[in-house]
Amino acid sequence: MAEPARKMEPAPAPAGDALLAVRDLHSWYGESHILHGMNFEVKKGELVTLIGRNGAGKTTTLKSIMGIVGQRKGSIAFAGQELVGLPSHRIARLGLAFCPEERGIFASLNVAENLLLPPMIRPGGMSVAEIHTLFPNLKEREKSQGTKLSGGEQQMLAIGRILRTGAEMLLLDEPTEGLAPVIIEQIGNAIRKMKEKGFTILLVEQNFRFAATVADRFYVVEHGQVIDMIPREKLEARMGDVENYLGV
């Protein structure tokens, strides 16, 4: 497949055509108030990255979208449908899929069972053969216990299993965490291919240099709020700000 030309004119903050629109989102874990009015949007086909320091609320944002935090207030609209108030299995059925930071590979399931676990929610997802082409290691180790895989292979499995469900938007939480550079490159290639296939992706990433190679736009998160938005083409000019935000 030919590499499509990179979009040159993406995104000043998108207006009404957002696939995902988060407005004044507050979230709590028990008593602790983590998100303090998040605002951001992701357009169809975009790859948007949340960056920020540890504890800023990036992971909580993804979990809030999926409905697996304690309590949510505000609005999360996905394809025009309000997610706040829905249980997480209904949210998933609308076309959202989540790859958690801890990967969430099931020890009591083998690799094939892990891959086939998430139910198909609509047609149009990738076939198992396509996923095996993307991550050949998964095919070789089909019968292994899921948690016997290496960290990199587990990450591939965690991403691979949400590609076949027909979900149109993927939430990826730190897919490169703790992985060797050669594996990170493989994950990066996979993410670019997923984007070509038309998946809309919201990525949380500590590894800014990795994120810079795949993302269209960056939202900077601090203390549970979005404090800045940087489109890819402004990135070079604003590296000073980024370093300041991330404290590097």
Binding site: G67, I68, P87, A92, L117, T165
Partner: peptide, 9 residues
Amino acid sequence: ALVQAFGIN
């Protein structure tokens, strides 16, 4: 929680 987030009731 994760199984439910995959769309299983």
